[in-house]
Design a binder for these strands. Structure first.
Lengths: 353, 353
DNA sequence: TTTTCTTGTGAGACCGGTCTCAAAAGGCAA
DNA sequence: TTGCCTTTTGAGACCGGTCTCACAAGAAAA
């Protein structure tokens, strides 16, 4: 099949000429504004069809100032958490005839800044961001278009935000572990810390990370577990060393008898590492993870998870943003979605000697 | 933290006035074209900084005709196959300073058409599409900008295409099954057929689906298996009934002793259904699936998969498209990437009585 | 019939950049 | 000093839409 060469691009003026009316009139019917008589409208429409006119959205945005698209900056589309959230966002956006320009930050602030700059230059009408770090939020604060935060709240930034009840979720999950008799419980997260962590959880400024650690520590305190802070492991991302870190953790003398993982990617790595160490879940070690990823239900044993309403997260944040684009000027909302724990078979009594 | 209200948007003219030069000169330094004396360049740059000038990409695209973005239409971002491929695409795009506008077709041709129309109206410089159906490709054929096809080839469409060696992959996987003694082998795919399938595989026009079936049938013929066509099951998508279909398949009198699944989403459904039927892999039934999804390595037993270079698929198609955007006018290329089979533990000898 | 509205239409400015073209300025040889 | 060539600068058209405004025509009111 032959492909059409460059198209000379039919414009309003062309249609106007064809329909023998003024450019203004043709623009009126084509743009769907102003009033035009039925007869002329039909003529213009016919001319447009004959010429195969396609509006140039760019030119339209140029004058209206609205581009009809929103920018979304996530940490990593590859992570099923984000791809599901993005799905929620784009489903809502499509319903409003808005489209989504996606950018990956790779959880790197500089990449995030640059992505935002580019999206802004493209005149997106609004922005949904999952801030990579929260120490560095100047670039977010000075964004002049509507902004909404996804999954991670920034206390200093008074904008629409949708998160889940991370603290409570971590609390409940950890409590499930302490009630099973565990006292050496590790919390493993992919997040990297800017400074040094000295148990000063309240100083962590990425809300998701902070709240979860707070919840984790709450539960540990309730169970009178001392020094729980030392069992918090950061930076277990996807680098090669992360796997090694986990192996070391699992092989250490007083290895944890239970682990809470911050996301399904980390948990999968943990699961593999546990296996490679010849450990058995839940006999030797218990495991709970955030995010009900598809794999968690088919392992042996299936993994107990904290089920976050990820799709709804994306859906809500998009709804909030779009409402704002439509002129809503209520004070920013901070929606916290509930999580549920899906109990499967990965939690057992403590194996501590 | 206070959010800035509407920005009055600083333009080239503003900068020019501030720097006391003409608009044209200011535009030259800001746009980085033409020649300007060092003294004036510095002055303009300083004025721009003082005013916090940010270029309006839309206006720029307006005159240049290039928007600096490409459109990507995939079946479903939620599917890990696509999210990984999209990752590959956006990584490459970012390197070239191009950004990606993402659209979901939901594997529906009408949605695909509309997405393409919107993207084209947004003046994307190029388009990467995973055609949902191949009966209906008029809308693809008349696209006037560079187009590249991802994962699915369209013989009638002579454009850059990157696929994997589906036929060979299916052949090798099926052969692995026949060599293990299996003779009742089912092929289960999420793809839906436009017409009726009567064994006329060559008439299927979605290349991925056709090639795989062809490979499957090749292997069956080699093993002198009769009526293999009857064991091909379409439409096992994510609808409720799909699961039921599988259950029926598994509970039927002469249920297959081995299954080849077309993607990891279908395979996961199958895996669950097999379990629910109380069947054991690989004792009662063997399973191989396309796509090395993360879950396939952690199940008991781990699943033998056809590993497709998904990231590379996205990477290559983006490279091809971007090369074309840069003016390359070599004849369209059709790249076929190799697959490898990762043998795990889900294939055993036939359990046929 | 004349005046006053209403409604439909056309002319042209405008959005914020790019780019062509011609004029101005500077450099150098004669 | 004059002339010619090169480099720098400014004026203004242009991209493809939207939108304001003035005006024409027909309808309703006086």
């Amino acid at each position: 099949m032959k492909r059409p060469p460059k198209a000379p691009s039919v414009t309003v003026s062309d249609v106007a000429r064809e329909a023998k009316v003024s450019k203004a009139t043709a623009a009126r019917v084509l743009g769907g504004y102003g009033t035009v008589s039925e007869a002329i409208r039909a003529a213009v429409l016919e001319a447009a069809k004959a010429l195969d006119y396609r509006p140039n959205e760019l030119a339209r945005s140029m004058t209206t100032g609205r581009s009809g698209s929103i920018g979304v900056v996530v940490g990593d589309i590859e992570n099923p958490f984000f791809s599901l959230a993005v799905r929620g966002i784009s489903d809502v956006a499509r319903l409003s005839g808005i489209n989504v320009i996606l950018a990956n930050s790779g959880e790197d602030v500089e990449a995030e800044k640059s992505a935002i700059r580019v999206l802004l230059a493209k005149q997106v009408d609004g922005l949904i961001v999952t801030p990579a770090q929260s120490g560095d939020i100047g670039h977010l604060a000075e964004i002049a278009c509507p902004l909404a935060l996804l999954d991670r709240a920034l206390p200093e930034l008074d904008v629409d935000t949708v998160t889940v009840d991370d603290r409570d979720a971590a609390l409940r999950a950890t409590r499930m572990l302490t009630r099973a008799g565990h006292r050496r419980i590790a919390y493993v997260t992919a997040a990297v810390l800017s400074g040094e962590f000295r148990g000063a959880a309240s100083k962590i400024n990425t809300s998701t990370v902070r709240e979860r650690i707070l919840g984790f520590l709450d539960a540990c305190r309730d169970a009178a577990i001392e020094g729980a802070e030392r069992n918090i492991h950061f930076g277990s991302g996807r680098s090669e060393s992360a796997h090694a870190v986990m192996q070391r953790l699992l092989r250490s003398d007083n290895r944890p008898t239970a682990i809470l993982a911050s996301d399904s990617v980390v948990a999968l790595d943990l699961f593999k590492a546990i296996r490679e160490c010849g450990l058995n879940i839940p006999r030797d070690i218990s495991l709970i993870t955030f995010h009900d990823a598809d794999w968690t239900s088919v392992t042996t044993p299936p993994i107990t998870v904290i089920d976050q309403p990820v799709y709804a997260l994306g859906k809500s944040v998009a709804e909030l943003l779009i409402r704002r684009l439509k002129g809503d000027d209520r004070p920013p909302e901070r929606i916290v979605l509930p999580t549920t724990i899906i109990e499967r078979m990965s939690v057992g009594p403590s194996s501590a000697t």
